[in-house]
Every structure is written in C-alpha cells, then in structure tokens.
Amino acid sequence: MALQANSTENGEITSATEEKVALKKTIGYFSGVNFIIGVILGSGIFVSPGGVLLYSRLNVGVALMIWAACGVLSMLGALCYAELGTTFPSCGGEYYYIKKGLGSIPAFIFLWTGVLFTGPAVTTVNALMFAEYAVQPFFPGCPAPELIKKAAAIAIIVIVGIINCLNTKWIVTIQNVFTVFKMTVLAAIVISGIVHLALGNTQNLNKAFDGDIPGVQQIGEAFYQGMFAYGGWNVLNYVIEFLDISTE
C-alpha cells in the first residue's frame, strides 16, 4: 500500500492519497461464463436425473415439472447474485454478503461451516464422480475397484489444489478446456434426444402423468436432487474481484 504524505500546520503527517489494495483481475468474460457453466455442469447432471425420476415414482410428467421448477428457482437465484455481484464487486460470495448485512460472527460461522463440512463434501462427490468415469475404461466388463477410484479422486483433488495455489490463470484455462469438452458431449446427447423424438419415439411422453403421484416427502427429495444438478450459479461471486470483462 503506497501513501503520499503531506505536512500540516502542526507538523503532523497526513495521507493525501491511498492506493487501494485489490486482487489482480485475471478472469475475463469468456472465462467467467465458463467458470459458472463448468461448476453447474459438474457431477450433478450425471447423477441427479435418476434420483429425480426415482423420487417422482417413475412419473415422467412429474419429473419434468420438477426439473422445470428447479430451473426457475435457480434462474431467480442467479439473477439475485448477478445484482449482488455488480453492487458489491468483492470476493467472498455469501461470506461477504452475510458479514456486510449481519456482522462478523454469522459470517464466521457460515465460512467455517463451508470449510469444514459443505466444501469438502461437494469436492469429494465431484472428485469421486470424475474418478468413476476416468477409471472405468481401464476395467471393461467389470466395475472398477473402489480403492483405485478413491486413490484417483485423492490425486485429482491434490493436483487441482496445487494448480490453484501456483497460478490462477492456469486453473482458469483448464476450466475452460474441460467446460468446452463437457458442453460438446452434453450437446451431442441433447441433439440425439431431439432427433430420437423427431423420429416419432414419443411413447414415454404420450402418458407422461400416468402412474403413481409422489408424496410431499418424495417431491422434496426430488427437488433436492434437481437443485443439486443446477447448483453452481452462485460461484462466480466468490471470485468476482478477479473478473475483468475487458480482457476477453
């Protein structure tokens, strides 16, 4: 922090100007969008659809309605965070907003809850899902050993953590590459589904609401599964201070 000093009549030194200490802006517009998409398209989209359909009691119409409702809720949340991010362009996400609105103690509790419980749990799920898909091709015809999957997951967490510590720009580049790959694969799946429907294979939709109606508890479980798949729309606010849309 650099200060420019001026003398006063009493001989005291005062600060005329003070440079603001801020994080270097290293995330451009393209990388910021990829950051959000990459987190949302994590493990959730690959594991949640089965859970939503199961808790919907295999009722296709109810499952589709739950997916649509989860999408609307996530969009509303994302719009709120877009407003917060432009109003308070500082890193920290919920921690910063809770501290500003409710004080340091609630913010401290929230932060340490995330550090000790929520963050490690989500990271573990993502790493295990990545290891599941990365290791399985080496064991055709049989499930991959659990020990190898866990070892691969630990290795992924360590490698990503080291890259994050070494250089933010590197991890942003890796995020962009993997996001493009995931978007390509998912786009191929979506296009294949549209073509399948266009060919007249709509038997699963003709009686979409036939079958058992799930109870309140089951609908809640289905919503939890759906919201987990949509989760991630708030992540950019954790690194908003790195954002510089003028660089890309």
Rank of each mutant, 00 (worst) to 15 (best):
P214Q: 02
C91R: 08
G38M: 02
S104L: 13
I240E: 02
L111E: 02
G114D: 10
F138T: 13
C91D: 12
A153I: 11
F138A: 10
A82E: 06
A22Q: 15
K150F: 01
L205Y: 06
I154L: 14
E248I: 02
A153Y: 03
I45N: 05
A121M: 09
E248D: 15
V180S: 03
W112N: 10
M65C: 14
A131D: 01
A5R: 12
I163R: 00
G141M: 04
P120I: 15
L76R: 11
I45H: 04
A187W: 01
P140F: 05
L111A: 15
L166Y: 03
C70S: 15
V115R: 00
S104H: 11
V172W: 00
N237L: 04
Y95R: 13
L23D: 06
A134S: 13
L76C: 13
P143N: 04
T184P: 01
L102I: 12
L41P: 01
A63M: 07
M1G: 11
E83P: 00
A208K: 07
L58C: 10
K25V: 04
K149A: 06
D244C: 07
W112L: 09
A2H: 14
Y230L: 09
S56T: 05
P89Y: 03
T184D: 07
C70N: 05
K24G: 08
E248T: 12
N234C: 07
K149T: 06
G28D: 00
G200K: 10
V172A: 08
E248P: 00
A82L: 10
E9S: 14
N204G: 04
G44D: 08
N34S: 13
T179G: 06
G103Q: 06
S48K: 03
I40D: 01
I154D: 04
Q4T: 12
N167W: 04
F130E: 00
T202F: 10
W233V: 00
K24M: 05
G231D: 10
L197T: 10
N204T: 12
A188D: 05
L3W: 10
T124E: 04
L58Q: 15
L76D: 10
K99W: 05
V47C: 03
Y238C: 06
N6C: 15
L199D: 05
I159V: 15
I27F: 09
V180E: 04
Y95F: 12
F117S: 11
G50H: 02
Q175T: 11
I157D: 01
C142V: 15
S43W: 06
F88E: 01
M1I: 12
A152V: 06
A134Y: 02
G71S: 09
G119H: 02
L166C: 12
C91I: 08
A208P: 08
M227P: 01
A222E: 03
G51S: 13
T118R: 02
V239Y: 03
L84D: 07
V180W: 08
I162Y: 11
G103P: 01
Q203K: 14
I174P: 00
